[in-house]
Design a protein around this nucleic acid. Structure first.
Lengths: 187, 187
DNA sequence: CTGTTATCGTACAATCTGTTCGGTAATATA
DNA sequence: TATATTACCGAACAGATTGTACGATAACAG
């Protein structure tokens, strides 16, 4: 990839992130992004068809990375340093979030979180399915697997949101404890 | 309230509902609503400051009504006819949803559901708080009440969405059973 | 019957969108 | 280093949307 392309793409991501921390997603125009990134109009459209595709690409990068480390798969980067073999996937994810790669927490806790959370949940479902459902780690096998996978993923996302909205007062281990308590019937 | 005002307001709600069943919320313009409702431009803005306030008012009407019947409070209407005294609040809500007042299910299952679900969840939280948290019906009192209320509300909303996305194949009683199973640790 | 007011129709400036174009400069490659 | 490629710029464009303003009309309440 051309160095100019990389720089422009990064400038757009960066500008978009900066803006999304300030105001809701749907109040941000392509014009705003262009101004903030200080690039030409045509250049933006050469990179992203619409604002929505920009959002999608950013989320793919952010959540794809986090979920892949949880899968133990490399993603162009080394494995997360503070990882311990014996901790649960959920604690692992929480620790990773706490590191706040690329200000991911600001995005999830901003007024817009619904939009980012939808992408987060999608990636999380894949993780839960391969990590739990496919390995037979779910209790209540009389309930539909789809329902259980969805329940676990949604609940974890909601746990993270609750954590953020209260200022992340709890340690990751404590929060993981909360989550595992309410999930006792399922996992 | 002036009869003309009532008619216009209803025409706007109706047009908006019809549109939202066809395409995503953020792809609907005020212009579209004006055309569909067949009213003057200034008339729309005399009723709603923005599209977002229209959404809010509609949701207040829809979910406020449903949640209030669950609370046993009258809301300008008589109590839900098929109500049985011994059934759980959740089963009651599901039955009420199945009746599909004002095409509420179309809204919740449309591509945009996130927007409506946020309002649904807000109203549901109030219900859960007064119905369970304040009456001491929640187990795990060592976990923060906020966290538990949020968990129950979110999980119920997710259950409804899962139900809708699969064509509502299950009877309300069966679905309520699913929900109560995964909630066994909490309620 | 009379005063009030919701609506209409039209018009308006301001903004945003997505595309086009020729010119410039950075880049990859040989 | 020389050359061909390509990403970027900046300006311009039509089309659509937004929110507001106005007088005229007709429905409404008392």
């Amino acid at each position: 990839m051309d160095r100019r392309q990389r720089k422009t793409r990064e400038a757009i991501f960066s500008a978009f992130t900066r803006l999304i921390e300030k105001r809701p997603y749907h109040q941000i125009t392509v014009q705003d992004i262009i101004d903030e990134a200080d690039i030409g109009r045509a250049t933006f459209y050469a990179h992203f068809e619409t604002k929505e595709y920009l959002l999608k690409d950013l989320c793919d990068e952010l959540f794809g990375h986090i979920v892949n480390t949880a899968l133990g798969l490399p993603h162009g980067h080394e494995h997360y340093a503070g990882c311990r073999a014996d901790e649960s996937v959920f604690l692992h994810l929480l620790r990773h979030l706490q590191e706040n790669d690329r200000n991911i927490l600001a995005l999830l806790s901003s007024q817009n979180n619904e939009i980012f959370l939808a992408y987060f949940k999608t990636d999380l479902k894949k993780l839960i399915r391969t990590q739990f459902a496919d390995t037979g780690a779910l209790k209540n096998s009389d309930l539909p697997t789809d329902y259980l996978v969805n329940h676990v993923s949604s609940s974890f996302v909601e746990t993270v949101v609750w954590w953020l909205s209260h200022g992340m007062k709890e340690e990751p281990a404590v929060l993981a404890g909360y989550f595992e308590t309410v999930m006792k019937t399922v996992i």
